Computed example of a mutant assay.
Amino acid sequence: MKNDLPGASGIGGGVWRGSDPAWLSPGASRAASLLEEAADLLVVHLDFAAALDRCEKGCRSLPGEADGEDAGSSEELRCSLCIVGIQALAEMNRWREVLPWVLQYYQVPACLPPKVLELCILLHNKVKEPRVMLDVGSDWLRASANQHLPTYGLLVQLHLFHVLLPLGHFAEAQEMVEGCKALSKEQRLEACRILKEKRQLWLQQPEEPPDSEAQAEIAWKTQLGLVSKKVLTILAQLGRALGSLAGQFGSIPYKMALLAAFVLFLIVVKLDPASPTSLPFVYRLTRLFHQARSAVFSSHYRPPI
């Protein structure tokens, strides 16, 4: 992913353009040395974990608050260290850690350097996760201190084309284009044209059919429901048969009890009571029970079937 993101070609010497390290404070001088080492590990040795470690050490060595020229050099060093660190995380496919890792050094999104924000937008657009940068980019663009920066117009376009439009936020994109004074007239017209095309394509997109896993789950639940109904029908038939025979076990001889158990076995195991083809057999079996009852018991005492 290194060659797909900005800053990779300038990591070796183009990113850091501060003063001579000999004239820096001890913390800034150590950070500059760690930056050079991190860039060498990233580009030459491809040791991304070690490069990230050097960047973290370099950011921790920088003073929290500095004055004068040293403050500008420290901020530029911190920005360069973050660029190398972002590149190292991207190479290790740890892009989800990029934004939290950067914000630990800048606290709020509005304080991010333009280069760092640009790199984060492009990275999350490449991995198809622009939503991560939606609030971060909006907060940065709304900050009044950032609206006077030379790269503000570029960041507006990046947020527009790589965050808002992929997410379908066309109303917010239209409002941003119309209210941005950093864009020239030609840039606004071009942005409006692209916005109109993207909106038409968005509306013409067909609804995505459910994936195969969802279809398989629906089919499984349907089949499970049918099986459950069949089992409940069998259990209901079995319960009625047991209830009918429970009052007769005291007066029916042992052989007749065995015969009844055998017939019950045929009904439950060999015959599906829920099937329409089994109804004539059940009807004939009921008639046989009535005939057996008439033959065995007297007319004064005939237990119910």
Rank of each mutant, 00 (worst) to 15 (best):
D4E: 12
L5N: 06
G10P: 01
G13N: 00
W16L: 04
R17E: 05
S19C: 07
D20L: 08
D20N: 15
W23G: 13
A32N: 14
L35P: 00
E36Q: 14
A39P: 01
L41E: 10
L42I: 05
L42M: 12
V44G: 12
H45V: 03
D47E: 14
A50K: 15
L52F: 15
D53M: 09
D53E: 15
C55R: 04
E56F: 07
E56V: 10
K57S: 10
K57W: 11
G58C: 09
R60P: 05
S61R: 08
S61I: 02
A66K: 05
G68P: 08
A71W: 04
G72K: 12
S73N: 15
S74K: 04
E75A: 13
E75H: 13
E76M: 12
L77S: 02
L81V: 08
C82L: 14
I83T: 08
I83E: 01
I83V: 14
A88W: 00
L89M: 13
W95D: 07
R96L: 08
V102M: 06
Y105S: 11
V108W: 01
A110R: 13
P113C: 11
P114W: 07
K115E: 06
E118F: 03
H124M: 12
E129L: 14
P130Y: 04
L134P: 10
D135I: 12
W140N: 11
R142E: 07
N146W: 03
P150T: 07
T151V: 03
Y152A: 06
L158R: 15
L164R: 08
G168F: 07
V177P: 02
V177E: 02
E178R: 14
C180W: 01
S184D: 04
E186S: 15
A191P: 01
R193I: 02
K198H: 09
R199D: 04
L203R: 14
P206W: 05
P206F: 09
E208P: 06
S212H: 11
S212V: 11
Q215I: 11
K221R: 15
L224C: 12
L226T: 10
S228P: 03
K230H: 12
V231M: 07
T233W: 00
R240S: 06
R240W: 02
G243P: 01
G243S: 11
Q248P: 02
G250R: 09
P253H: 06
L258N: 05
A261S: 15
V263Q: 01
L264N: 00
F265Y: 11
L266C: 03
L266A: 01
V269P: 02
D272E: 10
P273S: 08
A274W: 00
P280M: 05
Y283R: 08
T286W: 14
T286I: 01
R287F: 01
F289W: 09
H290D: 07
A295Y: 09
V296H: 13
F297N: 02
P303C: 09
